[in-house]
Design a protein around this nucleic acid. Structure first.
Lengths: 129, 129
DNA sequence: ATGGACCTTCCAGTGCAGGAGAAGGTCAAG
DNA sequence: CTTGACCTTCTCCTGCACTGGAAGGTCCAT
C-alpha cells in the first residue's frame, strides 16, 4: 500500500502520515525499489488507534507513549487506564468551568434583555463574567 | 500604576500585559514622562475579566469581541443580548460536545479497568481506545 | 516518449498564548 | 554618581498538530 492509499483508507493526508512517521508514531515504512513508502495492512489498525486516541482528547505524545509500550512487547492496559483517568478529570474540570461560565453569561444576557436601553451603561456588560 | 505592579496585582506578567495591549485586549496605556506605561485601577478589573474568561476556556479573540462591544461605549443592550445569545449557543454546544466525549472516555476507561492484565495481549491494545 | 498522477525531501508557515533575551532608557536610594 | 530594580522596544522561540509549496523522481498508459 502506498502512502496515498493509506491516507485514503484512514481519512487522513499524506502530509499527516509523513508527519506521524517523523514524530515516531508510525515506524519507518519500508520502501519500494523506486523509494516509495510501502505499508502493510497493520498500518491501518495503528492509524485507527491513533485516531481514536485523538478523538478521546489524547495528545500525540500520550498516544506515542502507549504505542511505545506496545511496541516494546508489553501490554499497556494499565497505562491506558491511567491516561484515560487523567483525561476524565480534565474533562470534568473543563465541563464544570464551562457550566459556571454559561450560568454567568445567561444571567448577564437576562439583564441585558430586561435593562432599559436608556439607562444601560457599558460598564454593566462585564459585571457577571 | 506601572506595568510590574499591575502584573503583580493580577497574577500575570509584564510580557503578557504588553502582549494583550498589542492584541487589542488592553487599550494603549498612557505614558509617564519617562515613557513608562501608567495604568489606572480600572485596568485590574479589565484583567480580572480577561482572566475569568480564560479560566473558563474562552479564547482571547472571544474575550476581545465582548470587550470591543463594551468599549464601543454606545453598545445597545439589544446588540449585547444578541451577542450573548450567540455565546450561549456556542457554550451549550461546547458543553454537549464535552459531555459526549466524557461519556466515551468513561466507557473506554471502564473497559480497560475490567480487562484482566494477564490475558491482555499487546495486540489487544486497540480494544481499549 | 510524453503526460499526468503520484511520490520524494526539504523548508516554511499557520494559530494560539504567550516566553526568552538583548540592548538600552529611567528612577530612587545610598 | 553609581548601583540596581524596573522599564522600553525589538526580534526570535516554544509546543501542538499539522499544512503548503517548491523542486525533482517514479510509474503507468497512451
Amino acid at each position: 500500500m502506498r502512502i496515498g492509499e493509506l491516507a485514503a483508507a484512514t481519512s487522513t493526508t499524506t502530509k499527516t502520515l509523513r508527519f506521524y512517521e517523523d514524530s515516531g508514531l508510525l515506524p519507518h515504512a519500508k520502501r519500494t525499489a523506486g523509494g516509495y513508502r510501502d505499508y502493510g495492512r497493520e498500518a491501518i489498525a495503528r492509524l485507527d488507534f491513533i485516531r481514536r486516541g485523538r478523538a478521546a482528547g489524547l495528545t500525540l505524545a500520550q498516544i506515542r507513549e502507549v504505542l511505545d509500550i506496545r511496541d516494546a512487547g508489553t501490554a499497556p492496559c494499565r497505562h491506558v487506564a491511567e491516561l484515560l483517568d487523567d483525561r476524565l478529570s480534565a474533562l470534568d474540570q473543563q465541563i464544570a468551568d464551562l457550566q459556571a461560565l454559561r450560568a454567568n453569561v445567561a444571567h448577564l444576557r437576562d439583564d441585558a434583555a430586561h435593562a432599559n436601553p436608556a439607562e444601560c451603561e457599558p460598564e454593566d456588560v462585564c459585571r457577571y463574567l
